[in-house]
Simulated scan of single mutants.
Amino acid sequence: MSWPLLVQFPHLANLAPVALCDLPTPVEPLPAQSPLCWVKRDDISAHPYGGNKLRKLEWVLGEIRQRPIKRVVTLGATGTNAGLATALLCEQEQLACDIFTFPQPDSSVVRQNRQRMQQAGAQLHDRPCLLRAALGWYLHPGRLRRDHYFLYAGCSNPVASLGYANAMLELKQQINDSLCPAPADIVVAAGSGATVAGLLVGNQLSGLNARIHAVQVAQDHLGPFSVCNARLIIRMAQQCWQQLGLPWEQFDTGFLQWHDDYLGTGYGHPTAASTHALDTASRSGLTLESTYSGKAFAAFLDIEKTAAQPCLFWNTFNSHPR
């Protein structure tokens, strides 16, 4: 069953999620690390492009197909992984795609992503800073049209969060099937927020009650707007929880552990710790990058040093050939 969340909450079936992923994704030990170290392989969640965005887009696409949508408008960095996933989905669905971008440090991943977005037919609207890109997205004239769908950075919105609430129920089933031990700690990159919010919701639904270590990879605020912080994550978790029809008073926010000390000088900028993490991960057969997964794995390496119980790294980066 791709969506155990629908078994527990059958009223969500009216959202009509669309199968895009090869689920369940594997959960494996990390051979170069302690026996307590495991990884959830969302890097191979789908073909030809994996990563965490596809789990979210399964639910987003269900919403798109129920409306007369002809164009998707999204937002991201110059080489946005979410933008690439969205562009490929729009190509598949024969939808137009606009992506407003803001600068990030150049890398081979950035260049490859931009090339693939353009090959998929996406229109890239490059802006000189995050504020200008965000304004382009917020003030787009298509806001007045029913055939435009506006998708926030990271493929994140309340519906998208359900993809990772579902993913935690998937992990719980793998634990029940003795494919891995129950982790006391789960470490994941925190960008636009829907992945972490969904994991928090699924963590409580499943009864795993693990500590969810969210590793900040983007700036805290843009002027008065929250971009990447614990308060925003909790607000998104609340929206996700309430979609399930559950009273917010039953939700325990104490499982979120926020880490803001791995960001370095900013979004997309590598750090010494993330560079070391990429090298260490490669010895366990993992392909990571320095914007999201490398910083999260750097935190994982620090957390597992003192772990007395199993610790799981949730790999959100696409590792299929580009």
Rank of each mutant, 00 (worst) to 15 (best):
A120S: 01
A273N: 04
T80W: 01
V18A: 07
M117D: 07
A19F: 03
Y164K: 02
H148C: 13
D260Q: 09
R211A: 14
L75N: 05
C180I: 12
H259T: 07
G266F: 00
Q115E: 13
G76Y: 09
Y267I: 07
V60K: 01
A194V: 13
N203H: 10
L139C: 14
L263Y: 04
H11F: 02
Q309I: 00
V227G: 06
Q250E: 14
R145P: 08
V110N: 11
P29K: 11
A214V: 08
H11S: 04
Q219Y: 07
V159M: 00
D177H: 00
N209V: 03
L278P: 06
R146S: 14
L131D: 11
M117F: 04
L278I: 11
R41L: 08
V217W: 02
R322M: 14
L171N: 01
D302Y: 01
L205N: 14
L131V: 15
I64C: 03
N315C: 14
L169G: 05
R127Q: 13
L246K: 12
N157R: 03
T74W: 01
Q104W: 06
L312I: 04
V217P: 12
C311M: 02
R322I: 14
P158M: 03
A214T: 15
A77T: 08
V227F: 12
S34G: 03
A197Q: 12
L95W: 07
G202M: 10
A299H: 10
T101V: 14
A298M: 10
V39R: 00
Y262K: 12
T80E: 03
D177Y: 00
E28I: 14
Y292W: 05
W314E: 10
Y164I: 02
Q119I: 00
G223Q: 10
V60R: 02
V7D: 11
Q33A: 11
F251Y: 11
Q123D: 02
W241T: 04
L88A: 08
C155H: 02
Q8T: 15
V39S: 03
L244V: 08
K305L: 12
D126K: 00
Q94V: 10
P181A: 05
R143H: 07
A298N: 13
F102A: 15
P270Y: 08
M117T: 06
K70F: 06
